[in-house]
Write a protein that binds this DNA or RNA. Structure first.
Length: 500
RNA sequence: GGGCACGUAGCUCAGUUCGGACAGAGCGUUCGGCUUCUAACCGAAAUGCCGGGGGUUCGAAUCCCCUCGUGCCCGCCA
């Protein structure tokens, strides 16, 4: 069977793609909360977890383009043992006994206490360690009981560290609509309500003083402890209350998690089911680790790994070098100021890092490699950004020419291929959103550029040998291509420079 | 031991849901292209038992079973 699209299809795509809204789908009326990153506020964001904010942010963006009402949530784990250890360490150790911070930034400054505290607990004098453990336990109990003073002590640490982390994440950029603190569900009593409800369920039992759930019916062999024998709650218990809040506030909830969280997620789902929730409204997107070349994993506690700030700085520095080295043989006469160079370097450098991560299937493990992450040629953000800048260049040189929306004048194979590629974009957004796979948009963007470059090479817009009406139609085509590129990059959270 | 994921050119990866044309890109290698809207680009060449074995099918990278390798998980941690 053979069929081909009608002229109306090409005319429609050409017209629709002139809009800044190109690729956006009609409102679904559905609210979706995308929880991502949610890294414990223990120290600087490192590259080992870089996939979470980049994937999560891109996922939120593609769902937004697909017409959902998206809320981006960072769940702040401020109630666990880690934060109790951190708070104790912060109050106990003297700054004079700590090494110099790697950066003048609160997350780098405070993580020194956290590392020192952990080191002490591992290697310190047993009696002193026991004493410390008592203090730590007191903090956990204070939080669990909703004690205001304890809450404030912990908050002092959490808010400072989180502030530093937010700054780093903002560079990607990964920004959030809500920072939801775990302690909120202790202070409002909802965690303890969950405990009461679970205790009444037919799956609950008590063993060695701890309350737990038998999840055999969900094919989970390990039981789910929801109340310790000392009657304090666990992270997972609080997460149940957290998710009941999500069910209350949103139609749909998606969580971006590392693959190590899968069992936890399954247990959480089963317990939410027991509590009578519609767990079809909850979904997880898992990603595999970013590891270091030697197979070493990145750890905040141990201080191994590459800090995200260092990666981004290096990316921007290399991009600036690339921009400057090209300044001399630029043909286009738009003199770039130092400010322009810096802006472009930032857009290109950070875009390259983002694209490197967002373009791959999240379930595949990545070994971090400086050269690969900072490659500005081939299948990369700069490749797509460059095509966008070229398209902008044509528009900038086209003074006086008015675009003409007439696909009938665009009948060469290169023009037809480009029209078809433009027309595909909304469908790609729809598919990527439905599958929760932002990397499909990255693949589309790269393929789109191949088609655009074929057109760019063979069909000039501005030239003495091009008829005026054809030039006008081609200008409209270039505008549509430019819009497609800009919005595809926008879905991925990558900026589209108008000049490079 | 059990569960989940991954294995496609020297390297990094698309394609696997929903089976269909000689399996596609980029990097690297070899050759070629800036008096023409930006060469961070483009063209050409070489490179593959799609981890292995079996099965289903007219047809399998794709579905099923087995197997090998790698990562992650199997806490009254988060």
């Amino acid at each position: 069977m053979n069929f081909s699209p009608s002229e109306a299809y090409f005319d429609g795509a050409l017209a629709d793609a002139q809009s800044e809204e190109w690729g956006r789908l009609p409102d679904t009326g559905q609210s979706v909360v995308v929880e991502h990153t949610s890294a414990n506020p223990t120290g600087p964001v490192h590259v080992g977890r870089a996939r979470n904010p980049i994937l999560g942010d891109a996922l939120a963006r593609v769902l937004d383009y697909a017409g959902h009402d998206v809320t981006r949530e960072y769940y702040v784990n401020d109630a666990g043992r880690q934060m109790a250890v951190f708070t104790w360490a912060y109050e106990t150790f003297d700054e004079r006994d700590l090494p110099e911070p790697e950066r003048e930034k609160p997350d780098y400054e405070l993580v020194r206490y956290y590392r020192k505290g952990n080191e002490f607990l591992e290697e310190g004098d047993p009696e002193a360690v026991e004493e410390a453990e008592e203090e730590i336990a007191a903090i956990i109990e204070g939080l669990d009981a909703g004690d205001e003073e304890t809450y404030e002590r912990v908050e002092t640490v959490v808010d400072q560290v989180l502030g530093g982390m937010r700054e780093t994440l903002g560079r990607l950029p990964a920004e959030f609509d809500e920072f939801v603190k775990e302690t909120r569900f202790l202070r409002d009593g909802s965690t303890h309500d969950v405990v009461d409800d679970l205790r009444d369920s037919e799956h609950a039992f008590r063993e060695e003083g701890a309350w737990q759930l038998d999840l055999e019916a969900w094919d989970i062999e390990q039981s789910f402890v929801f109340l310790r024998s000392d009657d304090t709650t666990l992270y997972t218990t609080r997460d149940l209350a957290h998710h009941e809040w999500k069910f209350e506030a949103f139609d749909y909830a998606i969580t971006v998690l590392g693959e190590d969280q899968e069992l936890h997620a399954n247990k959480l789902n089963a317990a939410l089911d027991i509590l009578g929730n519609d767990t079809d409204r909850l979904e997880e997107v898992f990603y595999a680790w970013v590891n270091l070349p030697g197979g070493e994993s990145m750890s905040t506690r141990q201080g191994t790994g590459v800090d995200m700030d260092d990666l981004l700085d290096e990316a921007v520095a290399r991009a600036e070098e690339a921009v400057r080295s090209r300044l001399d043989d630029r043909i286009r006469g738009d003199d770039l100021t130092d400010e322009d160079v810096e802006r472009i370097a930032r857009q290109v450098g950070i875009g390259a890092v983002r694209y490197d991560i967002v373009s791959k299937q999240p379930t595949k493990a990545i070994t971090f490699d400086w050269e690969d992450a900072l490659d500005f040629e081939g299948q990369s953000a700069p490749y797509v950004q460059y095509a966008h800048a070229r398209a902008c260049g044509i528009a900038a040189e086209a003074d006086g020419l008015k675009p003409e929306l007439d696909a009938g004048l665009l009948d060469t194979p290169e023009e037809r291929d480009l029209l078809k590629a433009i027309a595909r974009f909304p469908g790609v957004v729809e598919e990527a959103a439905a599958e929760r796979e932002p990397h499909q948009v990255a693949t589309f963007a790269r393929e789109f550029v191949d088609v655009f470059n074929a057109f760019y090479r063979s069909r000039h817009v501005l030239g003495e040998d091009v008829d005026d009406d054809v030039a006008a139609a081609r200008l409209a085509l270039v505008t549509a291509a430019r819009r497609t590129l800009a919005n595809a990059l926008d879905v991925l959270g990558i900026e589209a420079p108008e000049s490079m």
